[in-house]
Design a protein around this nucleic acid. Structure first.
Lengths: 337, 337
DNA sequence: GCGAGAATACTAAACGTTTAGAATTTATCC
DNA sequence: GGATAAATTCTAAACGTTTAGTATTCTCGC
């Protein structure tokens, strides 16, 4: 139904070739350019990118696999990515896995069938099987927020991560500098890449500060609201309560806050608190929450750049990029003594 | 590079036709089915949906235009939609407008070029120009969370909205029933469809309760965090302060909470508060925030259903769907006297 | 073993582009 | 004006499917 190049060619009295050249920004005789332009306007012609994709075998589309569409860190990064894509004429097919790994393979299959030119995967738990399937199919891959368990990747893909160890280290140091010695940590289990790294940063800082690591202050559960809630419940009921807590994920933090409220434990006052991730609500809490912010802009820019490089055929070596985290000091850490 | 039907045909000794039939679920001789199946597995064949789309002129793709990718209401609905799509073999191209209307036309153009089979638009401000361009191009449209200003739509599209008037009415009534008579409202300007409706529900409830509407208690600003912040600042400095406030958008609510905190006005205690939208943080605040929740599931299901009906060629009449809102009572409304 | 009808498979032409390779027009210079 | 080079355009064959229209094979009853 919509007009094709053939229609434009017929209407303007030139060949399809000339139309194609003009539409793609090539130089044609002024006279012809005008006639084509007129025909395009008249018939409301829009290039059929499907046909173009078939012929050029480039879909100009990047597949996005996201653990949770509603995760505000991921959607924040994606917002930046989308912007870069538009400028470059790319667009993105987004699909969600809800964290189920069979789902991620199914979605991957779908995307490969759609002949995407590359894939960006947003997940905190990276499945080696997934990565290999991806690489095996020859499509470029950028993984945000994860590294595969056990061993470096071995194909053409990039990993973009916040420097979680430093981020957690700095946060913990901030607590120590404010006189805290009994510091708890709430984080996800080791399948979550960032969870493990953040735990490590916490431990390293304590070690370096000469503070013994108390096992009963390390709370590990699912990397979501419920997990945070459960950890905080356990923490609140501890006989020898810590004076501060580092929560390694914003969802866990939300859950933890619920539990602290239920236990009448005033987070940010009685119990100093630092959480990971800058979310819109952070300043709305009372006291305002000190957080470890990840740089959405930098991560997004880099993810977009790398996947576009790969999509355009660059045969790049693996890359692991660490983006610094930034401690945003607000009011939820009290100075002890 | 990847295997094509031709390769499969050659390898299994049948014609492309037979391969196509088999791949599409048609019945072929057992013997052939086996040979094809083997070849498919061996060569890792995946149907090229680009070629299929070209031939069938159905891309099996729905374009999504979203005001903000990070808006948790929209992404929550989208998550539901994505699920329906997968089951039906569809997928979605998501792009963001950041609320700029020239941007929405640009994105629309991109999507039409990609030959999407339909468009879902998530926005609280619906541009009639946009709708008409959409309809003019013959592609189905579903608009979530908005109705065009001035006049019903006049083409093949659906509008799915929360019943904002009732939602705001119920919330206001809940305040009145708890003894509040001085009730403020914070909302967006009239370009935001839901903002106006929610204001109306508030006003209707007051009128019906015999409470005079005080103009100085109606705060209108941008439908975002900053707007909410500014409104709340003005509210907090009022000589004759209200005892309760209805905030008509979750972003405005977050901004308002910041301002209330800065003014040492304890929201949910000194100032009862009801906000629109169920966000993950709602229960994490202290006190837990009473909210007007929109039904992501129902909205998402309906949006997906309608756009798929349209995509599959159904020539449906316009539809306006109102999904009931639900008041979720928590602790941020105190009983007066 | 044959013919009819059903079941299955084949051939070839599209879908709307891009792009080699060949052909034409235009510009340049003596 | 004619020869040459440069600029522009044309023709036609792909890209990987789907699908009419047609041909082949199979199944039966007799």
């Amino acid at each position: 139904m919509p007009a094709t190049m053939k229609d434009i060619a017929a209407r303007s009295g030139v060949s399809i070739f000339t139309v194609s050249k003009y539409v793609n920004g090539g130089h044609v005789k002024n006279e012809n350019a005008e006639k084509i332009e007129a025909a395009v306007a008249e018939l409301g012609y829009k290039v059929n990118t499907t046909a173009r994709a078939l012929k050029t075998s480039r879909s100009m589309t990047i597949g996005i696999i996201m653990e949770e569409l509603t995760n505000s860190f991921y959607s924040g990064v994606m917002s930046v990515v989308d912007n870069y894509f538009l400028e470059s004429g790319y667009s993105s097919i987004i699909t969600e896995t809800k964290g189920r790994s069979e789902e991620s393979l199914r979605k991957l299959d779908l995307l490969l069938s759609k002949r995407v030119d590359g894939i960006i995967c947003f997940t905190s738990c990276c499945d080696l099987n997934f990565i290999n399937t991806c690489i095996g199919s020859g499509v470029g891959l950028v993984v945000v927020d994860s590294l595969p368990q056990g061993g470096q990747p071995c194909g053409s893909c990039d990993f973009i991560l916040t420097d979680n160890v430093c981020g957690a280290f700095d946060a913990t140091r901030h607590l120590v500098e404010n006189g805290h010695h009994e510091i708890a940590v709430i984080t996800g289990d080791s399948s979550r890449f960032s969870a493990g790294e953040r735990l490590r940063g916490y431990q390293e800082c304590l070690a370096q500060s000469g503070i013994p690591v108390r096992g009963d202050l390390i709370f590990i559960d699912e990397y979501n609201i419920d997990g945070g809630y459960r950890c905080a419940q356990r923490l609140a009921r501890l006989a020898r309560r810590p004076t501060a807590v580092l929560v390694c994920n914003y969802l866990m933090a939300l859950g933890a806050l619920v539990a602290f409220n239920e236990n009448d434990l005033r987070a940010g006052e009685e119990l100093s608190l630092i959480m990971f991730d800058e979310i819109q609500a952070n300043s709305a809490f009372r006291p305002r929450l000190t957080t470890v912010g990840q740089s959405l802009d930098e991560i997004g820019r880099l993810a977009a750049e790398r996947i576009l490089l790969r999509a355009r055929g660059g045969d790049l070596p693996d890359g692991i990029f660490r983006i610094p985290a930034r401690l945003i000091i607000r009011d939820s850490v009290v100075r002890l003594k």
